[in-house]
């Protein structure tokens, strides 16, 4: 720094270490609880040093909450959302930046408007669409009197009443969440910085648009894609409201939902040791991603909010 301030330097370290300890305190308590027996956890006060029940608790929590399956479901959801969002937004941004077409601005505004419709403000109707994915088409059919038309053609009474439910399926966990205005804008911004000369050179060499996308744009976007993947993986893994609504069948439940179900219920002896063991297991994958891919993570975080 600019001047020698030994006292302030020591204070700085003391304060930062204090911050780390306070931040880490809930994790420490959870780790301790994960190594204790139920009697010890509910004792007053709970011991503040590690016990020897860690493996027992892991085994118990694993079988009780079916963690193996739930971790798999979470991984499918997180990876599905990440790959889906990246793929969809790259091709949308490519279309918007590299083509001139009539409804370009319309498309751009539709994507922009979706920023103002987070899932939390349209919970009930979105759930209804997931419960029967064909709702919009049935409505369209009714509007166009397709059933009357069909009745007239076939000479019999026809009613269209088909149901395709996305509840309790991987498609239901993933598809409604993979549209992304933020990612589209991120790639659009990035594509705009690629010099025109590069596109011209590719065109002169005879590359078509798809060739240009695959062989030039994608390799150039590698770092951006990687940084975005880190952020989106965390986003996908940590989803709560949507999986809570669309998975009633425990075999499609994600691990974050599973933890909520292990939380102590009123009128029952709390099993905090199991709840905390499972919570630690459930948060491990995204936390490890942040710690080990820190530079990509920070880059992705800062870029995706621009």
């Amino acid at each position: 720094m600019t001047e020698r301030t030994p006292i302030l330097d020591i204070l700085t370290h003391v304060f930062l270490i204090l911050g780390i300890l306070v931040t880490g305190f809930p994790i420490y308590v959870a780790l301790v609880a994960a190594t204790l027996t139920p009697e010890q956890v509910n004792g007053l006060p709970m011991p503040l040093f590690f016990g020897d029940q860690f493996l027992v608790n892991i085994q118990e929590a694993w079988s009780r909450a079916d963690l193996g399956l739930q971790l798999f479901n979470s991984a499918v959801q997180a990876i599905g959302i990440t790959v889906g969002k990246v793929a969809i937004s790259i091709i949308s941004a490519f279309a918007i930046v590299y083509f001139d077409f009539r409804f370009k601005m319309t498309a751009f505004w539709i994507i922009f408007m979706s920023l103002m419709l987070p899932i939390e403000v349209r919970i009930v109707p979105t759930y209804e669409v997931a419960a029967n994915a064909l709702t919009p088409f049935l409505w369209l059919g009714e509007l166009l009197r397709l059933d009357d038309l069909a009745s007239w053609i076939t000479g019999e009474k026809v009613r269209f009443d088909i149901k395709v439910s996305l509840l309790n399926s991987y498609a239901g966990l993933i598809f409604p969440l993979i549209a992304s205005a933020t990612a589209t804008f991120l790639f659009r911004q990035f594509f705009m910085t690629i010099p025109n000369e590069m596109t011209e050179a590719a065109k002169i060499d005879g590359a078509g648009p798809m060739r240009f996308l695959l062989d030039i744009l994608l390799p150039l976007s590698r770092t951006n894609i990687a940084a975005l993947c880190v952020i989106l993986f965390i986003y996908g893994w940590n989803q709560y409201l949507w999986p809570l609504l669309v998975t009633t069948d425990p075999s499609y439940s994600t691990v974050v939902i599973g933890i909520a179900k292990l939380m102590p219920q009123p009128e029952a002896v709390p099993e905090w040791n199991l709840a905390m063991t499972a919570a630690l297991i459930a948060m491990a994958p995204p936390v490890l991603v942040v710690v080990f891919l820190q530079r990509l993570f920070v880059r992705g975080l800062v870029e995706s909010e621009k």
Binding site: A87, S89, S92, A95, P209
Partner: peptide
């Protein structure tokens, strides 16, 4: 920007995003 020619390609590229937006956001 230098752009490519393609009459239906941009619509095709935008289709997945717009489909999901109309289906699960705007509807």
């Amino acid at each position: 920007r230098v752009t490519f020619d393609g009459h239906w390609l941009p619509y095709l590229l935008l289709f997945p995003q717009l489909l999901i937006l109309v289906w699960f956001f705007f509807w």
